[in-house]
């Protein structure tokens, strides 16, 4: 009898816990998704209806592609989209090559300069020259307004280097030794044996570097002041967003606030869509990378 009662009491508590936890998480999911969903709906709805909606839009209303036509008629969108794709691909490729080679070299305990070189790399995580001296160096090297100035910053991220090195150190030593016995040098061992077994880690690197290139805008703003034709999509998006919020302040602009907003929503969608589409497939790797970084080598 007593046992029965206890069991019932426990399950009651279980029920309250379940209801509470499920509802909290559901609310959080809604809060995370709603702003994105709103922007997506607003980008294909009639602008005047969006303006009257006061931010509450659960479904697109009076679907129109008007905003997208406006955006795609803008040549700069196409240029900058191509630029972003170029920076993302070329930049990520360079990142992966340099990071993995460095991490592989410094994962060897038997080289004498392992310690000082690792220190040389790690120190940059804690101290740097800062915005102005870095800008002046880029400027004095004559790299201002060139694509190199976009690809150079962040060529090797120390955080990603640590992830990569930790991974290489975790590989069984027999892999290298058997390759050595077969007469392979370090380079052949690296390309033929080590890299093929490191696909998962490289995938994480590709994602981290790729996303940061796709979203990058500040260095471009700093280093490409006079070459708009090299600007990435993020910078053009920024201009469009700023234009829409300044249209809200001055009434004399050529386009109405509603149209400016619609263009803004459409631009946000086309600049974010690639990430949102790829994201669900890549999500497990992202989280995996964080865990790899927290394993200290």
């Amino acid at each position: 009898m007593f046992k029965m009662k206890k069991h019932i009491r426990l399950s009651k508590e279980d029920m309250i816990f379940n209801i509470l936890s499920y509802s909290i998480i559901t609310v959080l999911i809604f809060i995370c998704l709603y702003p994105l969903w709103y922007v997506a709906c607003a980008s294909i709805s009639e602008p005047t209806i969006v303006a009257a909606s006061h931010g509450i839009l659960l479904w697109p209303k009076q679907i129109t592609m008007f905003a997208y036509q406006k955006v795609f008629a803008n040549k700069e969108i196409w240029y900058s989209y191509a630029n972003t794709i170029f920076y993302t691909f070329a930049g990520t490729a360079l990142n992966i090559i340099l990071t993995s080679m460095l991490a592989y070299a410094l994962s060897h305990k038997n080289i004498m300069l392992k310690k000082p070189l690792t220190l040389f790399v790690m120190f940059t995580m804690f101290f740097n020259g800062g915005m102005i001296p870095t800008y002046l160096v880029i400027r004095n090297l004559g790299l201002l307004n060139t694509r190199i100035a976009v690809l150079l910053p962040g060529l090797v991220s120390v955080f990603n280097f640590i992830i990569m090195r930790t991974h290489f150190e975790s590989l069984p030593g027999e892999l290298e030794e058997s390759a050595k016995i077969d007469g392979a040098n370090y380079w052949t061992t690296f390309t033929k044996i080590i890299l093929p077994v490191s696909k998962a880690t490289i995938a994480v690197m590709v994602l981290y570097y790729g996303v940061s290139h796709w979203n990058s805008w500040f260095n471009e703003m700093l280093y490409l002041p006079n070459t708009r034709e090299y600007w990435p999509l993020a910078l053009i998006t920024r201009e469009i967003i700023m234009a829409s919020s300044s249209a809200a302040m001055s009434d004399g602009s050529a386009i109405t606030q509603e149209v400016a907003d619609a263009i803004k929503y459409a631009t946000i969608v086309i600049s974010t869509l690639p990430i949102i589409c790829l994201y669900p497939f890549l999500q497990k790797y992202f989280a995996k990378g964080v865990m790899m970084g927290s394993v200290k080598g």
Binding site: L98, M101, L102, V121, L152, P153, F190
Partner: peptide, 18 residues
């Protein structure tokens, strides 16, 4: 193999420190 990355750190991180 380490050299390209080390050159990067020297140019982009250590030169600004100077």
């Amino acid at each position: 193999m380490a050299l390209p990355a080390l050159v990067y750190f020297a140019v982009y991180c250590y030169t600004p420190m100077l």
